[in-house]
Simulated assay, not measured.
Amino acid sequence: MGRVALVTGGTRGIGAAISIALKDAGYTVAANYAGNDEAAAKFTEDTGIKTWKWSVADYDACKDGIAKVEAELGPIEVLVNNAGITRDAMFHRMTPEQWSEVINTNLSGVFNMTHPIWPGMRERKFGRVINISSVNGQKGQAGQANYSAAKAGDIGITRALAQEGARAGITVNAICPGYIGTEMVRAIDEKVLNERIIPQIPVGRLGEPEEIARAVVFLASDDAGFFSGSTLSPNGAQFFS
């Protein structure tokens, strides 16, 4: 049995690709999900990766869920904070609920998941925390003040925790994907996709979930021990930071 890796939002889209890539690399993978039982069941059937259901926006649920995973699989040594939601609206129309839902999941969720796991990583003198941020956390995006703020916060906590974890053998890094060809993105109207989104990407195409997954596998590996506090930007040259 390899090192245990926990991937939040790990049964669909980029998260599913990450879970599968880590399994293929020899990790014992636990995939967390929040709501789609049917998709989670099919994911387990197709991949053999076990799933656990809880909301990363709920600290106590995270603590309990982590305890169940560790009781069954062993100490979590790799944490991939991938779970995220959108509640898009122009700022003058954005409701407090839309703001809070995104902040609670996309930013507080990173705290809620990492905080219970951190002491064990410190005690064992090894850990890998990989936070999936976004190009829109780097450059901002109209209609996504909540999402951009949360994803920018993910970069901030990455840099702070990298400094705190360094002496304990814990690396903390962020990945900021651009537009990736997930089911959600490919469901966008073809005209909008081809005329407004892809022309913004100098390489002329969407990224693939597997490209993000390969970056995660590298950052989780022993070979990445000198990478910490870094931000990888797989966005097809759309934005430089």
Rank of each mutant, 00 (worst) to 15 (best):
G35Y: 03
N36G: 14
V102I: 07
G207S: 10
P96V: 05
A25C: 05
A149F: 09
A71N: 06
T28H: 15
M1W: 00
W54V: 10
E77C: 03
K151G: 13
N173E: 10
T95E: 13
D46Y: 06
L193K: 01
G2P: 05
H115S: 06
D60G: 12
I201Y: 05
P75L: 05
G181Y: 00
I85N: 15
I49S: 06
Y33C: 14
P234N: 15
K63W: 12
M121C: 07
A160C: 14
K42N: 11
I155V: 11
A83L: 03
L107N: 12
G13K: 04
F91R: 00
N131G: 01
S100V: 03
A67E: 11
T51W: 11
I170N: 11
S221W: 01
I130T: 01
A152E: 07
V69M: 02
A237N: 07
G140L: 08
E45H: 13
Q98Y: 04
I198Y: 02
F240I: 08
G9A: 00
V172D: 09
A160P: 06
A220K: 01
G13Y: 11
Q144L: 05
N112K: 13
R122A: 10
A152T: 07
E70D: 03
D37A: 15
I130Y: 02
N104M: 14
M94E: 02
G181V: 01
G9Y: 01
V7G: 07
K63Y: 07
A30T: 08
E210I: 03
G137P: 11
T11Y: 00
E38F: 12
G169V: 04
E195S: 05
G10A: 02
R159T: 04
P199R: 05
V203Q: 01
V56N: 12
N136E: 02
T114G: 15
V4M: 03
F126Q: 00
A152G: 12
E183V: 07
K42T: 15
K139R: 13
I188S: 04
G74C: 06
Q238K: 13
E211N: 13
K63L: 08
I132R: 06
G156V: 09
P96M: 06
G109P: 03
V29P: 11
S230L: 03
D46E: 15
R167G: 13
V80Y: 12
I130G: 06
M121N: 04
D58N: 10
L6S: 07
K68H: 14
R205Q: 05
V78I: 12
E190L: 06
T11I: 00
A160N: 11
D64H: 00
F111S: 15
P234S: 14
P202F: 01
E211H: 13
S228E: 02
S148V: 00
F226P: 08
E211D: 13
S100D: 07
K68Y: 01
T44A: 14
T51G: 13
W52A: 11
S221K: 01
Q138W: 09
A34P: 11
V69E: 05
E70Y: 00
L73S: 08
T114Y: 14
P96R: 08
I66N: 04
F111G: 12
G156M: 11
E164G: 10
E211T: 15
A5Q: 00
G236D: 04
P202N: 01
M184C: 03
Y33V: 15
A145G: 13
P234F: 13
